[in-house]
Design a protein around this nucleic acid. Structure first.
Lengths: 221, 221
DNA sequence: CGCTTTATTTAGCACTTGATCATCAAGCGG
DNA sequence: CCGCTTGATGATCAAGTGCTAAATAAAGCG
């Protein structure tokens, strides 16, 4: 904070294209998370300290910019290690699940992520359906498999995970997710801190779910 | 359905103000549910078969119209009987909960209701916080009280329901709610039909929750 | 019927939106 | 230091936005 006032000129101009593009996408994530995808490109440009037509040098249309935002949020924030973590059988399932959800929440419960998710869901394009089936395949199904193994139930390789099992686990996954919605979209301050909530959710799950599956499998056989 | 074709003139004009107002609000619920609150008043008017300035005869501003939409969705669709149903102790709690959620879902899982809820949540006004604390007070707390009574736990009148209990129940309530989001906002078709999902959720809940509360109460005393 | 009331329309203003294009100037190679 | 490439700007368009005020015409009453 120097005392003297500097010239009010634009301090940074003429960035290398790759840098500028990245800068625009990151600002767009924050901007659209705040105002929704109907937020004006002029507002975004102003926030970047840049004129609005510049955006159109990097993206042929607003829709294309939005696609880049989707990519940044949905793809580049996904951590491949999560899958590996869920399958690490030398660790008790309970610990794996708790570790996974604490890390998962660190990314997904960010207001930016949550709001982009909800805005994009309401636009009704396929992104959210894609994400949900992605999560279903890579998280929910995986968890159901691990429960099978842990509880000495039929190997998923032989008796595939049923839709009922996945929907059953959706109750818990959705319940945890909704904690993030309450906190980071609606601005509620839950009394129970997140780690405790996660722990409680996992314990509720592990307490009842394996027996339910066992019963369902037995009935089916 | 008469055979002859009628004049293509506007069939209804000059409605009594109360009727027209109601008609506008109802169309606005459907319209904003579809396009979000940034949907244009001209589009809404067109859908009503009416010119756009007419809307401004009934509502001084678009914001005021949106407020009327909130009232229609949040207030007028709430059923007072739900509270009474939850407290009907001559009926087993399991049955009460199942009946409640089936009826609650009939209203709340409607795409219109869900989308208005999400759009209004993202606008960040107080409506959603109000709704959540309303539901917390009238549903979640009530359910926790009924669990206390059913399980022979301390009377809520003497030992008030704790935040931990309510947050604990949020897991299940949120999990059920999220089924509606998947189905009616994201357009997923869950394999498990809603009544079965509700039943499963309630059974998971009743199986573990009372013991958890009992333990927490004992630890506290 | 004629008259008054008022629901509804026509016309339009001020402003914002996504997008385009000619122009400018930063910064590098020579 | 010059000149060229190209990142960035200024000016602008056409379409749309919320909202207003005056004109129109449907309906009720005497």
């Amino acid at each position: 904070m120097s005392g003297a006032v500097a010239a009010p000129r634009k301090p940074v101009r003429r960035l290398p294209p790759a840098d500028r593009r990245k800068q625009i996408v990151e600002a767009a994530v924050a901007y659209f998370a705040e105002f929704g995808f109907e937020g004006a490109t002029r507002g975004l440009a102003e926030r970047l300290g840049v004129t609005q037509p510049l955006i159109y040098r990097y993206f042929p249309s607003k829709d294309e910019l939005i696609r880049a935002v989707y990519e940044e949020v949905y793809l580049s924030r996904w951590r491949g290690e999560w899958i590996e973590l869920l399958g690490r059988r030398e660790m008790p399932l309970r610990e794996r699940l708790i570790a996974f959800y604490e890390d998962f929440a660190r990314v997904v419960f960010e207001p930016q992520w949550m709001r982009i998710y909800m805005f994009s869901g309401l636009r009704g394009l396929d992104i959210n359906r894609w994400w949900i089936s992605f999560v279903e395949d890579h998280v929910l199904r995986r968890v159901c498999e691990e429960v099978r193994m842990m509880a000495g139930l039929p190997d998923p390789a032989q008796a595939p995970i049923t839709a009922a099992e996945i929907d059953g686990y959706w109750l818990f996954h959705g319940g945890i997710f909704y904690y993030g919605v309450r906190e980071n979209v609606y601005g509620i301050v839950p009394q129970t801190p997140l780690p405790r909530f996660i722990e409680m959710a996992i314990d509720s799950f592990l307490q009842g779910f394996p027996a339910t599956v066992k019963e369902a499998v037995a009935r089916q056989a």
